[in-house]
Design a protein around this nucleic acid. Sequence first.
DNA 1: AAGTGGTCTAGACCACTAT
DNA 2: TAGTGGTCTAGACCACTTC
Lengths: 242, 242
Amino acid sequence: MITRNPSLTDQVKAHIKEQIFNDEYEDGRIPPEATLAEDLGVSRTTIRDALGKLEHEGAIYRKQGAGTFVNEAGLQIKSRLEEIWSYEQVLQDHGYKPAVKVLTDEILPVNEETAEALELDGGDEVLVIEKVFLEGATPVVLTRNRIPATLLAVKERRRKNLPIYEYLEEYCDRRLSYYVSEIVPVAFDADQARKLGVKKGTLGLSFIEVGFDTNNEPVVHATSYFRDDLLRFRLIRRKTGA
Amino acid sequence: MITRNPSLTDQVKAHIKEQIFNDEYEDGRIPPEATLAEDLGVSRTTIRDALGKLEHEGAIYRKQGAGTFVNEAGLQIKSRLEEIWSYEQVLQDHGYKPAVKVLTDEILPVNEETAEALELDGGDEVLVIEKVFLEGATPVVLTRNRIPATLLAVKERRRKNLPIYEYLEEYCDRRLSYYVSEIVPVAFDADQARKLGVKKGTLGLSFIEVGFDTNNEPVVHATSYFRDDLLRFRLIRRKTGA
DNA sequence: AAGTGGTCTAGACCACTAT
DNA sequence: TAGTGGTCTAGACCACTTC
């Protein structure tokens, strides 16, 4: 059945993905674009948009003049760094049954680093939410999100364990558009180590990032810490012309 | 002047980028797509493709119904992780004048890890190239690339200091298409520390990656080490549907 | 030479934002 | 309500791979 929303392109994309997972394409060869267009009753442009997204995700690859093929190697990648939006989802993708625990949830004066990241003044306040993501009883990810207090539209804020992008929509009426993330290696300090259930000085990865909303305004300053023994990040790097 | 190659889209992209850097757009507002199409004498599709690429790179952002705008924050990002193709380029983008030193260049029996990454047998051989990238006399990046010996088409291999993707084109007739990279925090061992000019145990970042050619075959296994005090990586993370 | 993906056009209509 | 970006169509021609 054809409907708008999700877009035709996304429906086509989902359809092809399903075919791939059901092994419907022999030899990993995906039908020509013209054939797909005719079979699915959409234009070739729509097909190409869908294939373009799948290629970008690493699910397929295309070779001009030759064809379009399933990318077996690309399909193995569990969670691609560029696409991470929720750590619960990341842990699920790794086959875990994640739990979330809110450690801190309070409004505090902003510190210097956060003030700069969120373009605030020294006297302003931020809501600080610290969460830990666990697999069973084992902590895997520790996050600290800081949201300008002025953005909080609602007094009542239950469901503090929402993913931050949902939290921002629900309580701040802001839609998160993208993050700029810096990747930093760390040796966990005593506090971090305790919260992550490892020895002080254990090696790990951290992200320092700023999330921007659809108006391109910074709305959240996040720092995240990962147990390298339980979670490894991958990404696909491509050449982008000029 | 209109020519093919580079594509119209890339020409449009370059043009808009230039306008941005020359501050030609008041208030950071980029003209409507229809206007751009008419002014540049191309179709709106071509304009949209170019804007789409610029948006993906973080140079602009778009808001449906409102317009297209310059992304000042995005333009500050020096080298985006997803787009890294040459460490010389990365260092240049950071304002350094990079030098490259080839430390090792020899054909050796493949080790287990590389054999698995490149789908080789235990008895096969690989060309191992170890390079260090310096700013002046200061090492910043240490890389180790391994290429299957069977791919080497030419006996004479001068210019060992070529970026690996150019090396593969020149001596193996393979075009690098993308890398799958794993990001790992490390404490440098004695050997790495010496080559990077830091104390043993210093914290740093490393990439473990496999490069694939246009036939989606693994052609290079690379490990890279970075001095966190001199080089930080950033990337843009976005939500991708489904 | 046949078949495939890559680029480009011209135009229609929709969804959303601003005023 | 006017103007903007988002989606989609139908079709043309080009570049490349394969046989």
